[in-house]
Design a protein around this nucleic acid. Structure first.
Ligand code: MN
Ligand code: MN
Ligand code: ZN
Ligand code: ZN
Lengths: 142, 142
DNA sequence: GTATCAGGTGAAAATGATTTTCATTATCAG
DNA sequence: CTGATAATGAAAATCATTTTCACCTGATAC
């Protein structure tokens, strides 16, 4: 798997490119949809043995700040991470086995149709908007 | 604030109605949109001093199982809780100050319009579907 | 009303995910 | 090639949440 373009994007953030960061990037690419830090660690260890879990967390945080990675919380308290920059998408989370699938449309009706089309039985959904409230958009706010 | 109807619903779940549970219910009613366990604890303590945080967690879990309360994860790892049974709704989460507002429509376009109408600047959204994947709907699975 | 006892509570300790600290190592601009 | 400094790993700290366990109390039966 070719990590060169990702490596370039990561370096553009200003940081150094190390073997461990490359391993995390590759693991993210290989794992695909929303793995946990632990899962990323396990996979990245195959590429760079001795890689510490702490480094994985730090790396993910760094990448997240550079916009290379997004952290998301689905149902449980553990964070999940995925590479940004692909097409915008959402997820189908199975309440029974926990598998996560990607969905590339993002409107409710279309999404539900898409979910049903792949045999997924939708029982609930979550939809949140993030941004800045009126007060925080006022001068002197950030 | 009248907690009687909630008390009735809670008892319907089969459990006992204690002063601490009543305090948690009242705190949930008073706090409104998606408070954390800690916030609920602080508020409920005004009603029933000596109430332990552990009891708050246990109570919320119990209520969640009875469908009286819903736990959700927004941006961070801490769980947030809110009374169910009101109309289905979503949230506007301010990235700057963290305030959470309710939104009662749930379709993307309408939601974004509603958000804009209240001066909220949307920069991102999250939308997830939960349910059962094809594999888990097959016989012998649950 | 009073006894009964399973369900509920609180304090402390355990857990699990994530973050911080700090001494050591390695990247890369010059 | 070398030095400045960013990154790493191990251990310890932190934070939210859960578990344990001895004690308490609400709800039903008498
Ligand atoms: Mn995905
Ligand atoms: Mn709400
Ligand atoms: Zn499944
Ligand atoms: Zn705000």
């Amino acid at each position: 798997m070719n990590t060169a373009p990702l490596t370039r994007r990561a370096r553009a953030g200003g940081g150094r490119m190390t073997a461990q960061r490359r391993a995390v990037l590759q693991a993210l690419q290989e794992l695909g949809c929303a793995p946990t830090a632990e899962e990323i660690h396990t996979r990245a260890r195959h590429i760079r043995s001795g890689l510490g879990l702490v480094t994985v967390y730090r790396t993910l945080e760094t990448f997240a700040q550079e916009g290379l990675v997004q952290r998301l919380f689905l149902d449980d308290a553990r964070g999940r991470y995925e590479l940004m920059g692909g097409r915008h998408h959402h997820h189908l989370v199975c309440l029974s086995c926990g598998t996560i699938q990607s969905l590339n449309r993002c409107f409710l009706a279309a999404a539900e149709r898409a979910a049903r089309a792949r045999g997924f039985k939708v029982t609930a959904h979550r939809f949140e908007l993030f941004g800045y409230c009126r007060r925080c958009q006022a001068p002197a706010a950030r």
